[in-house]
């Protein structure tokens, strides 16, 4: 990690590179047509694509409940939320394309298992309480991750993140409100909420990625200001934010070691099962195969629509050309 991830300034640099480094140091944004090191471009494409795929795959766990939402109000909210996630995916694919990536190609790489998406979406949504807990914890963790990315050094990525963060607040609040409603309900509803919290808590903590001493990309990404905080810093921030929310809701977070540490000024928490994380991220979580199969099916079943639209556009274009030629 020390040899491969040296800060760009430490290497012999060309004039272009020096200009790039100065722009980053002055906290200015890199824009699409600027010269940038190949590593910077590759790192960004990998991170943005992974992020875009997560938004797109992330529609499935909640989409699972749209037809079974308990009221029209909840159904309308859930539809709007899932539609937002599709939008987030598209903002991010759009940002990746400014780096020379091709959206169609990125989708193919996702379907071929060559690019990853967040491990969190490989867990099943067993009850409607899961919809609330995803909004509260999963979107909550996403907000923690994404707010600092609004200042990421790559302009189009930072701007996409600003747009996304504006919408995430609705996602988290609708989830929390849903849970508050269930907690005011029957004993069985309260049990459902607690059960969902038990299942989603640890996977939510894993969303921040491996611990800092095992994170391959963190040092270089921070030098380039693509990332602004380490995985562990963000995870701690999320825990500190969430504990009082859990208390207000009346649920218990499933970690006996979770305790306020007055010396650190933070909550201590238990050991995360990184073996589980590795298992899920490498394709062997409870729903990996199902998620990719559903995405593949949607892509293939939509092929005729894409072709028909292209054929229609071609026909219109040709007709117009004929008319212009005749005139």
């Amino acid at each position: 990690m020390t040899t491969t991830n040296t800060a760009p300034a430490a290497e012999p640099v060309t004039e272009l590179e020096e200009h790039f480094n100065r722009t980053i140091q002055r906290d200015q944004r890199i824009e699409p047509r600027d010269w940038m090191p190949e590593g910077y471009r590759k790192t960004l494409i990998r991170q943005i694509a992974q992020h875009a795929h997560s938004e797109i795959i992330g529609m499935q766990p909640e989409g699972n409940w749209i037809t079974r939402a308990p009221s029209l109000r909840r159904k309308a909210i859930l539809l709007a939320k899932v539609q937002d996630e599709a939008g987030h995916g598209l903002y991010l694919y759009s940002a990746a394309e400014t780096l020379g990536a091709d959206r169609g190609e990125l989708t193919e790489r996702l379907l071929a298992g060559k690019q990853k998406y967040s491990s969190i979406f490989n867990y099943p949504t067993l009850t409607f309480a899961d919809v609330g807990v995803i909004g509260w914890l999963v979107d909550g963790a996403a907000i923690c991750n994404q707010v600092p990315l609004c200042r990421s050094s790559y302009g189009p990525y930072a701007r996409a993140m600003i747009r996304i963060c504006k919408e995430e607040s609705f996602h988290q609040r609708q989830g929390y409100e849903l849970l508050m409603t269930m907690m005011r309900g029957t004993e069985e509803q309260r049990r459902m909420v607690q059960d969902a919290v038990n299942r989603w808590w640890w996977p939510s903590l894993m969303m921040f990625g491996p611990p800092d001493d095992q994170s391959k990309h963190t040092a270089q990404s921070m030098a380039w200001k693509i990332k602004r905080h380490t995985n562990d810093e963000l995870r701690q921030k999320f825990v500190d934010m969430t504990v009082p929310q859990a208390e207000a809701l009346g649920v218990t977070l499933p970690d006996p070691e979770l305790k306020w540490n007055p010396e650190r000024g933070h909550y201590d928490f238990g050991q995360i099962d990184w073996d589980e994380f590795q298992r899920v991220i490498s394709g062997n979580g409870p729903c990996n195969a199902q998620r990719i199969a559903a995405r593949k099916r949607a892509h293939e079943e939509g092929a005729w629509v894409r072709e028909a639209a292209a054929a229609y556009a071609r026909k219109q274009r040709e007709r117009q050309q004929r008319q212009e030629a005749a005139a």
């Binding site: 939008g87 959206r103 919408e167 292209a310 219109q316």
Partner: peptide
């Protein structure tokens, strides 16, 4: 400028832009 998208023609591009960039 708010971003980009793919579409078969101008009309579809406008419709998609409406759904993607002006939901609120």
């Amino acid at each position: 400028h708010v971003g980009s998208l793919h579409a078969a023609d101008d009309e579809m591009a406008l419709r998609h832009a409406r759904d993607l960039y002006t939901r609120r």
